[in-house]
């Protein structure tokens, strides 16, 4: 009985998706209600996707080259952002003087979106890899610090007391009590930051780049190639989802014991 019900809703989902694609097909390919530059037909998106795997028109790169360029930038910014964000977040939460001095500056800086830094970073670092990585770094850094900070701050006081009674030093308590108990928060931070990295990357590539998925959809737009824009968006979505999945896989491995 229950099984039958689940299937019923699966069917509704499948039918909805099919109807969506069908309506899309009808209004574009059959009735031509929208100009091709606005809304491509679903089959043309599909064929553009296949073609883009090998073709370098019109932006000078195949789909894989763009994906690779984007991944390099995103991961560079992400790794540095996490690498700096973790210690900053931890020391802000654990050492009062650091909290006093850094927190107000941080609270102000975090309200500035990473994108707004683009002009400054391009002046400082040019429009190469490092400028884009720096933009991503800002978003990742903020996302990591916020979550690590609240994770460490929420350490159960009783656990700290117990550790103190057993004579652990402040650093030891941090290493053996606070950080392990904050791990779920830390991973939330890593996941949030990954989303931020991907968002910052696209922003950076839209504004200043010669390769990458963001650049690809920007060029496609200039040529009125809505089919390629959608191919790019779908690829961006899939890559973002894959990165998140990979991180969740690592999280399950690491957080298991706690």
């Amino acid at each position: 009985m229950k099984r039958l019900k689940i299937n019923k809703f699966r069917v509704i989902s499948a039918v909805t998706l099919c109807v969506f694609v069908l309506v899309w097909y009808l209004v574009t390919a059959v009735f031509g209600l929208f100009p091709k530059t606005m809304l491509p037909s679903p089959d043309s998106v599909f064929f553009s996707f296949i073609k883009k795997l090998t073709s370098t028109v019109p932006d000078g790169g195949t789909l894989f080259e763009h994906i690779f360029a984007s991944l390099v930038v995103a991961l560079t910014g992400y790794v540095i952002g996490v690498g700096v964000g973790l210690p900053v977040g931890i020391s802000m939460a654990w050492f009062r003087p650091v909290d006093h001095f850094v927190r107000p500056v941080f609270d102000f800086l975090r309200t500035i979106p990473g994108i707004a830094w683009i002009p400054i970073f391009t002046v400082w670092l040019g429009i190469g890899l490092s400028a884009k990585a720096a933009i991503i770094f800002v978003g990742v850094f903020v996302g990591t610090v916020v979550n690590v900070y609240s994770g460490i701050k929420q350490t159960n006081e009783v656990h700290i007391w117990v550790a103190q009674i057993f004579g652990a030093s402040k650093i030891e308590i941090l290493k053996r009590v606070a950080i392990p108990s904050a791990l779920p928060y830390i991973f939330t931070g890593l996941r949030v930051s990954l989303g931020m990295a991907w968002l910052g990357l696209i922003a950076a590539e839209l504004l200043a780049a010669q390769k990458g998925l963001g650049y690809m959809i920007q060029v496609a737009r200039n040529f009125g190639r809505s089919d390629l824009v959608i191919v790019g968006m779908i690829t961006i979505g899939i890559m973002g989802a894959l990165l998140t999945l990979a991180l969740e896989f690592v999280e399950r491995r690491v957080v298991k014991g706690i």
């Binding site: 809703f9 909805t16 606005m38 696209i202 824009v229 961006i236």
Partner: peptide, 29 residues
């Protein structure tokens, strides 16, 4: 339940696309 069956597939498809990636399409539209 019906709402979930209808909406969730689209939600899952759109969620991983960052807002900024919509800019080119938005300009075309």
């Amino acid at each position: 339940k019906v709402g979930e069956a209808i909406i969730k597939p689209f939600y899952l498809l759109l969620r991983p696309i960052p807002s900024i990636a919509w800019i080119p399409l938005a300009i075309l539209w």
